[in-house]
Simulated assay, not measured.
Amino acid sequence: MPGAPASGLSEQVSGFAYRLAHEEECLAVENHRVVTFPPEGAAVQQAEWDKLLAEQRHADSSGSRGTDG
């Protein structure tokens, strides 16, 4: 029967993932599809989420249900 995971294993895995993303010049994406690396990618994703939320709030306040046709 295997024992408990080694102490710090999660941090080691995360560290490896971030180093790999940096070396390969790609995104690091964590749970719930949140971009966490590079910082510029995280900022772009947040800006897009903010834009979508603002559009949704505007649609809700104008009584639109967001349906086509």
Rank of each mutant, 00 (worst) to 15 (best):
S7E: 14
S7R: 13
S7F: 15
G8I: 10
G8F: 04
L9T: 04
S10G: 12
S10A: 14
E11M: 05
E11A: 14
E11G: 13
E11N: 07
E11V: 06
E11I: 04
V13A: 05
V13C: 06
V13Y: 00
V13S: 01
V13K: 04
S14N: 12
S14K: 08
S14C: 13
G15P: 00
G15F: 01
G15L: 00
G15A: 02
G15Y: 00
F16H: 14
F16Q: 12
F16I: 10
A17P: 00
A17E: 09
Y18M: 10
Y18L: 15
Y18R: 11
Y18T: 07
Y18W: 08
Y18P: 02
R19D: 07
R19A: 05
L20G: 00
L20H: 07
L20D: 08
L20N: 04
L20W: 01
L20Q: 10
A21K: 00
A21G: 02
A21I: 02
H22K: 12
E23M: 01
E23V: 01
E23Q: 03
E23A: 04
E23P: 02
E24P: 01
E25F: 01
E25N: 10
C26G: 05
L27H: 03
L27I: 03
L27P: 01
L27C: 06
A28H: 10
A28N: 03
A28L: 03
V29R: 01
V29D: 01
V29E: 00
V29C: 03
E30N: 11
N31I: 12
N31E: 14
H32K: 10
H32V: 08
H32P: 03
H32N: 11
H32G: 12
H32T: 10
H32I: 09
R33M: 12
R33Q: 15
R33P: 08
V34S: 09
V34T: 13
V34L: 10
V34M: 07
V34H: 04
V35T: 14
V35L: 12
V35Q: 04
V35F: 05
V35G: 03
T36P: 03
F37W: 04
F37S: 11
F37H: 08
F37K: 00
F37I: 01
F37T: 02
F37L: 06
